[in-house]
Structures are given as structure tokens and as C-alpha cells.
Write a protein that binds this DNA or RNA. Structure first.
Lengths: 240, 240
DNA sequence: AAGTGGTCTAGACCACGGC
DNA sequence: CCGTGGTCTAGACCACTTC
């Protein structure tokens, strides 16, 4: 009888971790065959169904591909399509450092439309933070975010020059960000935006209005981003 | 012993079909509890694992939600985020009729960049189709699509005023569209585009460049769309 | 023919939610 | 407490791919 898990992790997750580690360590490259269900069951001393579950959920995550009659193979490197990432994370994934400059911050109480998007009453206190994102010392985006001020009291006093707002929310407040709904369109730069982004007034900008939700399905933050065209392209994958 | 499937469909898929039918027939509404694993196992005369598999994959598809200790519930109606749909389908989903006007069509053989995107040699013959999309008799988008002319001979002669290009590809050519990668940015209307869309030159437009892939992973069509801001917003859901 | 993934059984114990 | 989903066993046969 196999000793049951007593380090907290289910057996199938341990198998997954082992496979993921071998991929990250480049012992397994895309296209390489992963141990079969039967092999894994034997190696890890579990039943076939458990080994199978490990591979099935790894396939769902896109880590491996399974072909009946052939085997299980390491999937091509994951493209970060449709992935909700903070600016800091996006830059890091390209090997760049994130720089941003806080333009203004305030607590507002008369933004009924934004409050409504966050499912708050019209006169709720909103913490607003306006930042210019830079890459290679050139501004490429103006991002304004809004959060319920009551729920995140420390933000108003805190320093956000350095840390990522995502990280602050996840670490300090234990918020689990799950997904974001985004509205994307195009708009012309007004005078103030043009100055902040160092473009001429009327320049086309990509506008992304983002409503972020926690894993409990609660709207927790609203962000309006204006992106210089040419400097920023949004990549999306849509499925039929 | 339960009689094994002999109508072709695996047991777990029959269970899924039964549940889906009850949802479509409105016998089950969003939020309603679905039979538990144990109930389903009993009703359909299968083992627990099989009933479980049926619910687990239904959850992955977003049809139901499962909560440990509580039960399985019909998920809220699926929002058509991140879904690859033809213009015709998009309009239909909003209860509108699709209207579009063919501006030009041609077979080109000197578009190396586009040919490259379709993984074709630089001088390949490309069938190009330029259409203005209308809603309520007002133009709101200019879409230009490119396809390998050799693979779709009938298109050049065919009439696309009415039928959907998606439908033609799927029905006439047996193409299974699977997904599209899109690059989205903002640009200013040039003179010709401005005239076709009835806006002034320099108006910001949302530009979507779409590369469509078949279920075999082959790039089969490239589309550049220019959308009037205000008239068209792209909706996206991103996951963490 | 050998090996793979896909489906399935008839149970078991655990962790969690709601009453 | 009871019912739920989550994990797991030790097998089985089928369908498919590769050789």
C-alpha cells in the first residue's frame, strides 16, 4: 500500500511538479515524450487513474500534449496570450525593468460612473492613482487606477513608486486576482495626456478600460490605460 | 453489470448531454443545483468516477460550477468573451442583421509581408477582399482580408456580398477555424479610409490585425480591420 | 504485436459546507 | 451531522498509433 500524502500535496500534483521541474531544467524539451501513464504510475507508486489525472490536468494547462496511441509530449513554449499581468510582470517577462512615475493620487468621492463599475454606491470614496509608464526612458502609457478607498486604507499613505500595485494587493491584502474584463477602443490624445506622453494633441491612442475581479468574482479595481500607438500592441488569442 | 455503451457515445458524454439538454430546455436555470455525482452515478447506472468525469469536464467548459461541500450548479450564461466570431455571427448574437459592401477584390502577387504571415512564399498569389461593414446604414469598419488564392479558387469568382466568408470557408472548403492571433493598436485614418468610413482624416481608429488558424494549426487567412472608435469596442477577458 | 491514451468499475477515505 | 466534491486504488477492456 502506498503511503498516503502527508506533506500536504496530493499525489497527482507531486507528479505534475516533477514533470514541470524536468521541463524547466531543460531535461525535457518541447516535443519530447513524457513518461507514459503506466510508467508514471509505477515510478510514483500510484494507481493508473492518479497518473492519468496528473497528465490530463497538465494537458489542460497547456504544459503537455497527449496523442492517443502515441504518447504524451512536452507542449511548445507557452505564449502568454490572454494573460492578466501587471506592468511589472509584463516588463519582466521581456527582460526589462519596469519604470513608472506617479503623476497624481487622491481620494475622490464624486465619480459615480467609476463607483458603479466597482459595484459601489455613487459617492463612495475612491483611491485614484495616475501613473506614466516608461520604457527606455520614454513614456508610452498613462494609467489611472481606481480602488475602493475603504478597503485599501494603506494605499493612500503608501509609496507605490517602486512596488507593483498587483503585488501590494496580493501580498498585503491577500487579494487573489482572477481575471479582468477589458474594453478596448481608440481615442485621440487630449492636451494633458499629450503632454504627459510627449505626443501631439490628437494622436491616436489605444484605450484599455480594465475591470479586475478577485477569485471570488468581486470587482476590486478599475484601470483606464492610454497607450501610445506604435509603442504598444495588444496581443490576443481568440478561440472558436 | 451495467450494459456498456453500444450507441457509440461514452457514458460520461451521455450524462453531459442529458444535463445540457435540461439547461437548454430551461428546466435548469443558472444557479440551480445539478444532480450530485452520487445521484448521477445511480441514475445513469455508472460508477462514481464516471459521473465525476462528466461533471468535471462540464465545469471545464464553463457549463457548471462545482463547490466542494456544497454541490454542482448551473453556471451563469456564458459571456462570449474571447470568442472568434465572424462579423455575421457577431451581429446575429446582438439580434442585428449584417450588412457589408465589397469595395474591391483582386488577386495580388507582390505582398511579401502578408504572404509571410500566411507562411507562403513571397510572391504567392493572394486573394484580397476589401469590405466596409455597416450597422444601421452607417459604416463602422473597413476590413481587408487575404487568403491563399490557390487554395480557394472559387472565391475570386464567387459572390461574397451576402454569404459570410467564415461560412464559405467552413462549408465549401471544409476548413475548421480554430483560433486567431490578433494584434491590436491604434492608428489614424488616412485619406482613403476616412472617406470610406465617413470620418475626417486623422481620426483615431482601432486597428486589429488578425491571423486565423485552422484546427490543424495552419494559418489560413489574414485580416486587417480598421474600426471607428465609439462605434466599436473590443471586449476581452484575461485570466491570471 | 506492443505500447499508448480513453473509458470504466466498485469501492475507499478525506476535507469542506451548511444545517 | 450528513451530503458534497476531491483524491485514490487496482484492476479491466477498448481504440488507436507505431513498428
Amino acid at each position: 500500500m502506498p503511503e498516503r500524502r502527508r506533506n500536504g500535496l496530493p499525489a497527482y500534483q507531486k507528479i505534475q511538479r516533477a514533470i514541470r521541474q524536468r521541463i524547466e531544467a531543460k531535461q525535457l524539451k518541447p516535443g519530447d515524450a513524457v513518461s507514459s501513464e503506466r510508467e508514471l504510475a509505477r515510478i510514483h507508486n500510484v494507481s493508473l487513474m492518479t497518473a492519468r489525472h496528473a497528465l490530463a490536468t497538465l494537458e489542460r494547462e497547456g504544459v503537455v500534449e497527449r496523442r492517443r496511441g502515441a504518447g504524451t509530449f512536452v507542449a511548445p513554449p507557452r505564449i502568454q496570450f490572454n494573460k492578466l499581468m501587471s506592468y511589472t510582470e509584463q516588463m519582466a517577462s521581456r527582460g526589462l525593468a519596469a519604470h513608472s512615475k506617479v503623476i497624481s493620487s487622491a481620494v475622490l468621492d464624486n465619480e459615480p460612473e467609476i463607483a458603479a463599475r466597482l459595484s459601489l454606491s455613487a459617492s463612495s470614496h475612491l483611491f485614484m492613482l495616475e501613473r506614466v509608464r516608461q520604457a527606455a526612458d520614454e513614456p508610452f502609457a498613462l494609467e489611472t487606477c481606481y480602488l475602493p478607498a475603504d478597503e485599501f486604507p494603506a494605499l493612500a499613505g503608501g509609496t507605490l513608486e517602486r512596488g507593483s500595485l498587483f503585488m501590494t494587493l496580493e501580498r498585503e491584502y491577500g487579494i487573489e486576482l482572477a481575471y479582468a474584463d477589458e474594453e478596448i477602443d481608440s481615442t485621440a490624445a487630449d492636451l494633458r495626456t499629450a503632454e504627459l506622453l510627449a505626443v501631439t494633441r490628437g494622436t491616436p491612442l489605444l484605450r484599455i478600460r480594465q475591470l479586475l475581479f478577485t477569485s471570488k468574482g468581486k470587482a476590486c479595481m478599475y484601470v483606464v490605460g492610454l497607450y501610445r500607438s506604435g509603442r504598444h500592441t495588444l496581443l490576443i488569442r481568440r478561440f472558436r
